[in-house]
């Protein structure tokens, strides 16, 4: 049975009539043409599908549409319009933190969540903050450097 589900997506009100047992990732990618969040594992392990829900990072591949009703969702498509994103993008570029790039949008959303709660994280805090976002290319160290750079150069943004 379909239900009317309403939520805010990147600042826009959305109402969609769909069964609440759809994976939110599919709703984004198939129904709303939001393809920045990627499917890597389909079981909440790799983090490529990460989005923010009311400011909290969640894995959209195991998020039922029913849980999104009444929430505010931010994906990379919305986030990339912000100053914070620009600071992260510059830092990721400068440090070489993106290789194949499939994990990167999720990694950026995880970083936003981390920095918004902890604007000056230590290495260890970054490592644990990214624990739900797997990357097979970089070995993470350049990502960690990029986040520290963004925290420093984007001082005051978070």
């Amino acid at each position: 049975m379909s239900e009317k589900i309403s939520f805010e997506l990147n600042g826009q009100s959305i109402t969609i009539t769909l069964s609440p047992d759809h994976r939110f990732l599919d709703v984004l990618r198939k129904h709303l043409n939001i393809v920045g969040p990627k499917e890597g594992c389909g079981e909440g392990e790799c983090g490529a599908c990460s989005v923010l829900m009311d400011g909290y990072i969640v894995q959209s591949c195991i998020l039922p549409l029913g849980s999104v009703h009444g929430k505010k969702i931010m994906t990379i498509e919305g986030y990339r319009e912000t100053k914070r994103f620009k600071a992260l993008q510059d830092a990721f570029l400068t440090e070489g933190a993106s290789q194949c790039g499939i994990c990167t949008p999720g990694m950026i959303m995880a970083t936003e969540y981390l920095l918004s709660h902890n604007p000056h994280p230590t290495d260890e805090e970054i490592r644990h903050g990214l624990a739900g976002n797997l990357c097979r290319c970089t070995g993470y160290n350049m990502i960690i450097k990029a986040i520290k750079r963004a925290a420093k150069e984007g001082e005051g943004l978070w």
């Binding site: 990460s50 990072i57 995880a110 903050g129």
Partner: peptide
Amino acid sequence: LRVFASPAIRNM
């Protein structure tokens, strides 16, 4: 909880 799963799973 600090070492439980990952931040996203803890949020859900």
